[in-house]
Nucleic acid binder design. Sequence first.
RNA 1: GGGUCGGUCGGGCAGGUGGUGAGCCCAAGGGUCUGUAAAACCCUCGCCUUCGGCUGUGGCAGUUCGAUUCUGCCCCGGCCCA
Length: 435
Amino acid sequence: MSTPQTPAAGLPGLLSELAWRDILHASTPGLQERLATGRLIAAYIGFDPTASSLHVGHLIPIFGLIRLQRRGGRPVALVGGGTGLIGDPSFRSADRPMLSLDVARANADAIHVQLARFLDFTPGPIGAVMANNLDWLGKMSMIEYLRDIGKHFTVPYMLAKDSVQVRLEKGLSFTEFSYMTLQAIDFQHLYRNYGVEMQMGGADQWGNITAGLELIRRSAAAAGDGEAVAHGISYKLLLAPSGAKFGKSEAGESVWLDAARTTPFAFYQYWLNADDRDVATYMRWFTLWGPDEVASLDAAIAERPGDREAQRRLAYDVTARVHGDPAAQDAVEISAALFQRDPVSDPRLLARIHAATSGPVVGPGAVEGGVALLLAEAGLAPSRGEARRLVTGGGITVNGERISNPASVPTAVAGEWIEVRVGKRNRSVVRVNAG
RNA sequence: GGGUCGGUCGGGCAGGUGGUGAGCCCAAGGGUCUGUAAAACCCUCGCCUUCGGCUGUGGCAGUUCGAUUCUGCCCCGGCCCA
């Protein structure tokens, strides 16, 4: 981890900030000089509409745009409504599925809405802008493409990309091979129509970014004063030191930014449970905290790991950014109630926890059938046999009491709520539906 | 299209020659200790109505008292040839 030092303010300090946060992978020569002029710069990042929601992995590019805007740059979020129809082959081992036009469009719209939360779209010099590349890629004719774009790319240049090389053995369709030229068109289009001078992206995108630079350089050759007219930055791939798969819950599910897919409570819990070895990286990447604050939390991790101060601060900060302060506060309170030693007995609090965690609902028959049946019916155990094993193994606590007999019948609080703990971390409130 | 080798739990494997497949390793889950950690140790790990029962070796048939094993056709994957 780099030694924190206060970077210069504004755009001139952008690269050094990314460096001390240990995010910077590569940047084009001359970029620092361009930023040092302090002149306004616009930069973009592309988002593939492969799903109808962004997930925590997308926070990396999102923060890329946020940091740019805070330093006085104009962020441009490009949704790949057109490129998503093709599928980026970069470093993928197999063909990626192509999205249908309808799905790509619907996903692009949904992602649009999510991105709006993170950036300031107020019109102005640094107001964020959204674009969808289907708007221009969808209109381009094949003749236009081959004459104006294809002409600037040599096959050896395209073949030389690492991202292509790794696919040559396994096979690569012409469609996928052409992907980099589409992304280059995006860059050129944004360069010409929005004044975008820079593209940012993950390290796996470097080949695509440079393809865009190549297209802009060749097609703007008339300018010809030798100075680079466009730039690129790539971010390191996030490798969690603990070896954990970033962005996956303990159950192996993706952690989404959409509250309907991942509740704010689950989202908060994901960050709170970050491994000590990973939290240092996460707080650098996923917050706007400065060097001093980061250093003090580094110290807190080292001196009082049990307090998990960094995890708590991180979890709150990210949850608040994604879901808002009230939701983050709610997640903190619910976590406190659910993970204290004593069971929750207040029906109103139980109802609140049930709602915030999207707790399971079962019929009265599931309760009368005993704990094992209840666990299976509530989806807290995959099968009745598994539920039985959990109970006999001492892993189940109901309303604060450890249960050892799979057939025992639990009592619902206020006739409606049952607090169930499966192991230590998985805690939930089950609602018994009398009707 | 032809040949060949394979398809056994989430992943990787063992199960020469027809005689009981619920075994192993990893991953995962639970417990103890903890911080809702990590590490370590212990337990579990197909399904069910659980002192017992059922299903299951890619699919469908066949031979047989009995098939992972033998036969036929089909599906899927690797490699070689065209």
